[in-house]
Design a protein around this nucleic acid. Structure first.
Lengths: 208, 208
DNA sequence: TGACGAAGCTAATGCTGTTAGCTAACGTGG
DNA sequence: CCACGTTAGCTAACAGCATTAGCTTCGTCA
């Protein structure tokens, strides 16, 4: 259910390189989701209405219901695509030397978020009906954080940092003149040092 | 404009213990905002409608416009209250020994967030019209992060971590069986170590 | 008493997602 | 070759949303 659940459960098994069972969609449904994706990024979540999506395809809003269950289902489809993309990028990113994993992971996370800001916000908004996502998808997408951090709680903290920094960067809430990259680097440095400190004490199972 | 701007600008001046100029409100407007606050936490952002707020006070929705400019203004008022509360708590929290500041700050941040989950989400949601907030309020509320971290970019990274962890905890997105407190502690440990490492090299002005 | 402002009201507008029910086209089996 | 069922479009309609316009009612003060 939660992104790191799978990571901890399968701690000793290598992560799958491809996303798990994605929802099947008819060709027309695919077109609708793709059109919605374009509208989302171009006009923001506020611009994403059923009428607007229909118009982009030359049909009326009620006709969309022949292909998708409704607006929540449409959002679910968008986020599912986004998680698959994000997960793929993150899994690729941790395929480097251990000491470089955290930096590489954060770079990939940031690049994916910047590549689809509105989708990132939608995917991580509270109102979003997360329960409708395919089972295991979020867990799979979150696995690389465990692989990079090496310890579950440090992994969750690293994930928190990535998530928070991404949101604050997208919303332009950092100090006006500041270079955002340095904020990412400051966090990366702190977590990489913590990882090495933990790795140096292999007999200690808990952080506490 | 952004929360840490003030912190960096006034690096050498002690932070104000009280929030800056808050918006003045008529008694009736105060009642409306308070009613809205209750509805927000009880029924979520989706339940917060003008009709619903009016009903809580025994009046119709259009009558609210005699006291407040509209829904965005109502949300602004709610968030302004929240930022004042949060800022006060955070400033208090950093009034401890340097080595304990980060932990104390994160505790206060977490407690404030957990004390008003829906307000926290509203205040940090992208759609929220942040520009309408009183000038300097966000910067003032963010100052304690600089005071705790001692260096601007580490401060922004620490703020990112707090924000991300708060959102993930509120949305219950962490590993099911995991103790969330340990995730907070893992991050606190990493950032406190980084702070001490930086503080040990006083001649080095940049992180890089 | 008369004026005026404050604070309520109803009615209406235009937006939203969504449902019901109709129609035209297409493919397939008898 | 025709009839049937399915697919995918349509219009009309509904309820709920924020918001505006315009009316009324009440209290205060000169």
């Amino acid at each position: 259910m939660t992104p790191l659940a799978g990571a901890v459960r399968h701690r000793l098994t290598p992560p799958a390189p491809t996303p798990p069972l994605l929802t099947e969609r008819s060709p027309r449904a695919r077109q609708i989701v793709d059109a919605a994706s374009t509208i989302l990024e171009d006009e923001g979540l506020g611009g994403l209405t059923m009428r607007r999506v229909g118009a982009a395809l030359g049909i009326r809003a009620p006709s969309l219901y022949k292909h998708l269950a409704g607006r929540p289902a449409l959002e679910l489809a968008l986020v599912e695509d986004g998680l698959a993309r994000m997960g793929t990028a993150l899994h690729r990113s941790v395929d480097v030397a251990p000491h470089a994993r955290i930096t590489s992971l954060l770079d990939a996370y940031r690049a994916t978020g910047l590549g689809g800001p509105e989708l990132y916000r939608l995917a991580t908004s509270a109102s979003f009906p997360r329960a409708g996502l395919p089972d295991g998808l979020e867990a799979w997408a979150g696995e690389p954080f465990f692989l990079a951090a090496g310890e579950p709680y440090l992994a969750q903290a690293l994930w928190s940092f990535a998530h928070g920094t991404m949101l604050l960067e997208l919303d332009r809430r950092f100090l006006d003149g500041s270079e955002v990259t340095r904020t990412w680097e400051a966090g990366a440095g702190a977590f990489e040092a913590a990882r090495q400190a933990l790795a140096g004490l292999p007999a200690q199972p808990h952080v506490r």
